[in-house]
């Protein structure tokens, strides 16, 4: 699945997006893989919301290979 990073998450991961192969994941599984790839993400986990295909999802969400997942840190538009 395609995972997108925004704002200061780009500084933590060093990239704007990454591909996470390996089939279906729940939210906890997704975070586990992200933290394995980018340990700095653990510190921001509590403040980051997940979106699937451009919609916010809850902690019970599941993600498949075809989904676009976005990590949304606290927003500051306007």
């Amino acid at each position: 699945m395609r995972v997108l990073f925004f704002a200061h998450l780009k500084d933590i991961t060093g990239c704007a997006e990454m591909n996470l192969p390996g089939g279906d994941l729940d939210a906890d599984g997704l975070w586990q893989k992200l933290i394995e790839a980018h340990p700095g993400m653990e510190q921001v986990r509590a403040s980051v919301r997940l979106a699937k295909n451009s919609e916010y999802v809850g902690r019970d969400a599941c993600f498949t290979d075809v989904d676009e997942v976005a990590l949304i840190p606290p927003v500051s538009g306007g």
Binding site: A7, Y56, P73, V75, S76, G77, G78
Partner: peptide
């Protein structure tokens, strides 16, 4: 709208 924008819309002051 402005209140919700600042809570939920994925736009950031980079």
């Amino acid at each position: 709208f402005m209140n919700r924008l600042k809570q939920d819309v994925p736009i950031w002051k980079r």
